[in-house]
Design a protein around this nucleic acid. Structure first.
Length: 436
RNA sequence: CGGGAAGUGGCGCAGCCUGGUAGCGCAUCUGCAUGGGGUGCAGGGGGCCGGAGGUUCAAAUCCUCUCUUCCCGACCA
């Protein structure tokens, strides 16, 4: 992408309305545009990041054996009357009427629709275990939307629903999702702490929240430093049950088992929440299958959510510096950036154009700042929008030398074209993605 | 909804107290210069001062109402 032709409305100053850093940076880098209170349009740069997150989430879900579907945002009230939640769910649920006067709603969550689908599909215990998920928009008419997409009213969520024959199987499905979530967050460059939680409006008796550690997090969390050393790839659910973690409302310093020197205190942003709630919905909505002995079985269910649009903000909260966003490479809108330090030297522009074309041909995610601006402006914008790897073309590129800059470390090195492409390949996990 | 604050070119702000018909920085456009870390100079365009009503010869400025936004509380991915 050439920046001169891109739709990237960057701002030099923080909008006065934005309070938190991620919101300021998302507005300044032209990722989002506020459409009304708590409702945002996603501009090209922001949408690219959302798509990256979706891709990682979908990949991990698929690996965990879940099946992607897509459910409607507008739903009939009848389904919610079946589950008993139409009257229970408060003003967060946006209620509307269609032209025939039928009660409809913009869905805040999808347990009812998922259960309804399975009422049609699930006939036998042999069809389970089954786990379906979607990545779709939700609407919750929050009392007080704030912090940009961190707490918007309309938000993108990955929500999944599991159906199992027995409680043991359902709990196993639950544990599997928890582990896959940890892998998902780790791939986004995030440190996520699972914390035992109340199940709230969804109901049920087993629930975990996932908190991303960031200085500007909304809640205070406490956890054993052992989490720092663990990798999601080797972690088991037993580790999660064994290792201490709690949010501020649950943490009791007097009864905390672990020694204070091992206790970590941090701010956390809740980016995921999972529930096991048994037969609550299957019984209420009449979802049953035939068991081995011909008996009726109400599937044991769980639901699993990741706040995708909130994750964008959470990643920024956890990855920024004074110059702007510092995207982890796996979620960056563009992995590589090309900057010409002088646009008036035609040879440099030609070399930049050539390099850009070569990278495009290799299907590399690259943004080329071809604008007729001072180098300083280009550097500032590349840093603001958080491009992880930046290639700078100066006088030395006439001798075949390119400067490579790592946004995270600030490290710079001079490379030949061949070395440059090795470096590009080494850092281009898109190709690895496809291979896998 | 309760408690605070604020609405003035695209963005950030000043002007308001003490009414006289709008200004600065950034952005944008033009020209010249510049060319390795948010360039310099000069010139230009763009605002019925959130909206409605009132007071007044005269309202961005004073009064009333209203809408919107932000912060604190209850809610949550």
């Amino acid at each position: 992408m050439k920046l001169s032709r891109y739709f990237l409305p960057t701002l030099r100053e923080d909008p006065a309305d934005a309070q938190v850093l991620s919101h300021k940076l998302m507005l300044r880098s032209g990722m989002i545009h506020p459409t009304c209170h708590g409702i945002y349009s996603w501009l090209p740069l922001g949408l690219k990041v959302l798509a990256k997150l979706e891709r990682i989430i979908a990949d991990e879900q698929d690996k965990a054996g879940c099946h992607r579907i897509l459910m409607p945002t507008i739903q009939p009230a009848t389904l919610w009357r079946d589950s008993g939640r139409y009257d229970d769910y408060g003003k967060e649920m946006l209620r509307i009427k269609d032209r025939h006067g039928r009660d409809m709603l913009y869905s805040p969550t999808h347990e009812e629709v998922a259960t309804d689908i399975m009422r049609q599909f699930l006939k036998s215990y042999k069809q389970m275990p089954l786990n379906v998920y979607q990545i779709g928009w939700k609407f919750r008419d929050e009392i007080r939307p704030r912090f940009g997409v961190m707490r918007g009213r309309e938000f993108l969520m990955k929500d999944g629903y599991s159906f199992d024959v027995t409680k043991d199987a359902a709990v196993a499905a639950y544990k599997k999702v928890v582990i896959s979530y940890l892998k998902t967050f780790e791939r986004m460059g995030l440190k996520a702490i699972p914390i035992r939680a109340d199940s709230g409006a969804i109901g049920g008796d087993l629930s975990h929240e996932f908190h991303v550690v960031a200085d500007t997090g909304e809640s205070e969390i406490f956890y054993d430093c052992e989490y720092d050393a663990l990798s999601a790839n080797t972690m088991s659910f037993d580790d999660i049950e064994r290792i201490y973690s709690a949010a501020d409302d649950k943490h009791d310093p007097a009864n905390c088992q672990i020694p204070t020197e091992k206790l970590r205190t941090a701010r956390g942003i809740e980016v995921g929440h999972v529930f096991y709630f048994g037969t609550k919905y299957s019984k209420a909505m009449g979802l049953s299958v035939v068991g081995r002995d011909g008996e009726a079985i109400f599937p044991e269910m769980g639901s699993y959510g990741i706040g995708v649009s909130r994750l964008v903000a959470a990643i920024i909260e956890a990855n920024h510096d004074k110059n702007g966003i510092v995207w982890p490479a796996s979620v960056a809108p563009f992995k590589f950036g090309i900057i010409t330090a002088s646009w008036q030297d035609p040879s440099i522009v030609d070399i930049a154009e050539d390099l850009y074309q070569k990278m495009i041909t290799r299907n590399v995610e690259v943004v080329y700042d071809d604008r007729e601006e001072r180098a300083g402006v280009k550097f500032a914008d590349m840093d603001l929008i958080g491009i992880p790897f930046q290639i700078v073309l100066g006088a030395k590129c006439n001798d075949g030398i390119f400067e490579w800059k790592d946004r995270r470390t600030g490290e710079r090195m001079d490379l030949t074209l061949e070395a440059l492409f090795n470096k590009v390949d080494e850092n281009d996990d898109c190709k690895n993605f496809v291979k896998r």
